[in-house]
């Protein structure tokens, strides 16, 4: 059996080819993800698929130029907050059907005229729900990926902090 390859500590540095292709591709991938989320109620797509595509753009950046590059764009704190905000948006939209519009939970309380069908601004609350789901899914999947794979950065920060605390204790005593 082949011995598995050890990963370098400072993230994966993939070289010029992969970095250049990533620089060209990350924009179109993000754009495709946003398109899938926004047009989910008209064409195939939606919050789940589009969110995963958006997350994969950031994962590609992580793989090509290391964790630090992607965490500067989309830090773990922002990801966990956006995760909660997305779910809260979805819940509030459902509650607005009962509390504000006075109908049942998750009722489609925005009526779109028949002429607006097949356009972007149609489908009532569905585009907003897709956006909420897209934000939620993208940040949740990116968060899980970062937490599971970018472990050595946490380790490094941990070492730094422990060293700093040890120094402080020495200087105090």
């Amino acid at each position: 059996m082949n011995t598995p390859r050890k990963l370098p500590d400072e993230g994966l540095d993939m070289g010029v080819t992969v970095k250049t292709v990533t620089r060209w591709l990350k924009g179109p991938i993000l754009l495709f993800g946003i398109y899938l989320v926004l047009y989910g109620h008209i064409t195939p797509g939606g919050g789940f698929g589009g969110g995963v595509v958006i997350a994969s753009a950031f994962i590609l950046i992580t793989l090509a130029s290391g964790e630090r590059a992607s965490l500067q764009l989309f830090s773990k704190g922002v990801a966990s907050r956006l995760d909660s905000i997305g779910l809260l948006m979805f819940l509030v939209l459902g509650w607005l059907g009962t509390g504000w519009a006075g109908s049942y939970f998750f009722s489609n309380f925005i009526n779109t005229p028949e002429a607006a069908q097949f356009t972007l601004l149609s489908g009532g609350i569905m585009p907003i729900m897709n956006i909420a789901l897209g934000i939620k899914v993208a940040s949740a999947i990116f968060l899980v990926f970062t937490l599971l794979t970018a472990f050595h950065i946490v380790e490094q920060e941990l070492e730094d902090r422990l060293c700093a605390e040890a120094h402080q204790q020495e200087s105090n005593s």
Binding site: H41, T43, L87, F105, F118
Partner: peptide, 28 residues
């Protein structure tokens, strides 16, 4: 009734939005 030409989204986000809430909660 929903105004969404994509019936998959219509079912996911309108007729069966409760299930989608459950899915989102699982991911959360």
């Amino acid at each position: 009734t929903t105004g969404a030409p994509n019936l998959v989204t219509a079912v996911l986000l309108d007729f069966r939005a409760w299930d989608t809430l459950g899915e989102a909660t699982v991911l959360f």
